[in-house]
């Protein structure tokens, strides 16, 4: 029945060109990271001498960069801090976002429309950088890990997405649970959350990625290097070209090794995220469709 009609020559040319272009686009998307990956496994002296773009590994293969990274205590500190910010931040976000989305998706909640507008308005207008900065100063949170955890604890956009996901759960399920005497916490935990797993998974990934990659708030709120996330050390190394982060605990490393280590740290700080997202990919669409704020 479907589409087994003979394809015209122009159609064949189109399909070929389309496939070819998509391959090119796909290649362009990954090429920079492939370059970094191969550089990170290369011999430091070769990298320092030749530079250039690499799309194939350079012999001799070397793990020296990775061995060196483990001796930089800043990298370990940054990695540890990032884990604290990501795990703590994801938990905070999930608790706040799910509970708000649950309430705003209940038709029993009388001030629903008004409260939704209070939330939605923050997507249209905000105090901006400086008043936010002053707030953190006035709360005494400068140089505190809480500054990063609290200022990123809630995201209205994610809440609206989850609210719309929760709204698509049939009312009849909730009604029968309520007849059985279930309260809101039980309904949320046993009905709404299990039926919205895909949306929650996507929101969790997006929040985790945002927190993992976040550096700007740390750059204005945290001066204590012991509390810096990994991205701040990366910025120092990649953007400011400072070797300060690379001061090794043990011995001063050679110039060549420091160039190599740039690539190694980039890989170490990026690969965890790149390994996770393909598994959640098919649900992405649930996290980007927002449709309308009002339902």
């Amino acid at each position: 029945m479907s589409m087994k009609i003979k394809e015209s020559p122009s159609r064949k040319i189109f399909v070929f060109l389309n496939t070819f272009l998509l391959c090119l686009i796909g290649f362009a998307c990954v090429a920079p990271m492939i370059h970094v990956l191969f550089c990170s496994f290369s011999d430091p002296t070769v990298i320092a001498r030749e530079g250039g773009f690499r799309l194939w590994p350079v012999a001799p293969f070397s793990f020296e960069g990775y061995r060196a990274v483990l001796s930089y205590k800043n990298v370990l500190i940054g990695y540890g801090n990032t884990l604290i910010y990501v795990i703590g931040g994801v938990l905070l976000n999930l608790v706040l976002t799910i509970s708000a989305a649950y309430v705003l998706s209940r038709k029993r909640f009388a001030p629903r429309g008004f409260v939704t507008m209070i939330f939605a308005f923050t997507m249209l207008f905000n105090g901006g950088m400086i008043p936010n900065y002053l707030l953190v100063v006035d709360l005494g949170l400068i140089d505190s890990r809480w500054a990063l955890l609290l200022t990123s604890a809630f995201n209205t956009f994610n809440m609206i997405i989850l609210k719309n996901a929760f709204l698509s759960v049939p009312d009849s399920l909730e009604e029968s649970a309520r007849l059985d005497g279930a309260n809101d916490l039980r309904i949320m935990w046993h009905i709404i959350i299990p039926l919205s797993k895909a949306s929650i998974a996507v929101i969790t990934l997006f929040v985790a990625v945002t927190l993992w990659n976040s550096w700007f708030t740390a750059s204005i709120y945290i001066t204590d290097r012991n509390k810096w996330p990994i991205q701040m050390f990366l910025r120092e190394i990649l953007i400011n070209n400072s070797q300060k982060s690379l001061e090794s605990g043990a011995q001063a490393s050679a110039m060549a090794l420091q160039i190599l280590v740039k690539y190694t740290i980039t890989i170490i700080a990026t690969v965890p995220i790149l390994c996770i997202y393909p598994f959640v990919q098919k649900f992405f669409v649930k996290g980007v469709l927002i449709g309308s704020v009002k339902e």
């Binding site: 391959c23 686009i25 993992w212 990659n213 990649l238 700080a269 990919q281």
Partner: peptide, 15 residues
Amino acid sequence: IQTVSYMPHFISMVV
């Protein structure tokens, strides 16, 4: 193609 084209989105701004 989708998977590889999403990749740059997940790379941090600093990197």
